[in-house]
Simulated scan of single mutants.
Amino acid sequence: MLEKNPTAIISVENVSLAYGAADGPNVLEEIDLKLHEGEFVCLLGPSGCGKSTLLKIIAGLIQPSAGSAVMDGIHITGPEWHRGVVFQQPPLYSWLSTRENVRFGLKMRKIPKAEGLKLADEYLDKVGLLQYAGHKPYELSGGMKQRVAIARALVNSPRVLLMDEPFGALDALTREEMQQLLRNIWRETGCTILFITHDVDEALSLGTRVLVMSRSPGRIIREFTTSFTCGITAESTGQARYSPAFLKLREEILGLINKQKLSSINNLN
């Protein structure tokens, strides 16, 4: 359960980002966002609205043209292990075993080998892949590779986990399994998660807060507080998704996103 007045870990204030030169058109405009301790925030919006760009700013992979992104009051100037990142295509090292891929970040942080191997196996066990610890990435399915990527991000015990459409390339059954895995990990670890998706059902069934962005230049135009994920189990997912409250909120969010798409089309005509 979230605290009544949770602490803000990440604060994004008045962030804008211009294409190319500083005087180019904005991809993001005047973004204000706070990520609080222990919450699961899902970010939705039409293609090209800057969702991934915003995540990369929070990750420290790119710098905004204006405004600031801070973590615990300190400006984010580059990547660091307190913010784990999982992308849609897991960038695993093909020459390393599953165990060594998970241990890689710990190795870079000079964590002793014995401790690193123990932690790697612990997190492989959490994602159900301990028996594949010696396998290479090419021997794994897409869903298994994504589990390795999640274990590699979590093994550093990050305070914030940033996920950019991590399940977008998976089939429907594997995607649902991965959603339940992530839900369980979030409940167990209390990690703060920012999750980007195009799927409204996925956002509502995972998030404690759902943010909707406008078409480019991206702005956050609506925020919804949700609680479906807190009661969902592997057996009750269908019940939640077909409940009147879920369907009503789903239609409202889809209406917002479709309105953005229509506005974009009309501007081209």
Rank of each mutant, 00 (worst) to 15 (best):
T192E: 01
R187N: 09
M163T: 05
R187P: 10
S141G: 03
P166F: 03
L140D: 11
S157C: 11
S227P: 05
A151K: 09
I196W: 00
L182E: 02
K145H: 05
Q131N: 11
L181K: 08
G218A: 05
E165K: 03
G143L: 11
F228T: 07
A151P: 06
F195E: 02
V148R: 07
V210Q: 04
I150E: 04
G143V: 10
P137S: 07
G168Y: 08
Q146N: 07
S216G: 05
Y138C: 10
W186I: 00
E139W: 06
L211N: 01
R187G: 06
L161D: 02
T174R: 08
A149K: 03
Q146L: 06
N184C: 14
N184L: 11
G231I: 06
I193R: 00
E235Y: 14
L211W: 13
A133S: 15
I221R: 14
S157D: 14
E223N: 11
E188R: 12
V148F: 09
F224G: 08
A133K: 14
E223C: 12
T225K: 15
I221T: 14
T226Q: 02
G142T: 03
V200C: 08
I150R: 00
A153P: 00
P158T: 04
R147W: 06
V127E: 09
H135V: 07
V160I: 03
R222I: 04
I221F: 13
Q179Y: 10
A153T: 00
W186K: 01
T229V: 13
N184A: 13
S157Q: 12
I232T: 13
E223K: 15
G207S: 02
R175E: 08
P137A: 07
M144N: 06
I220W: 05
I220C: 03
V148E: 02
L130S: 15
D164T: 07
N184I: 13
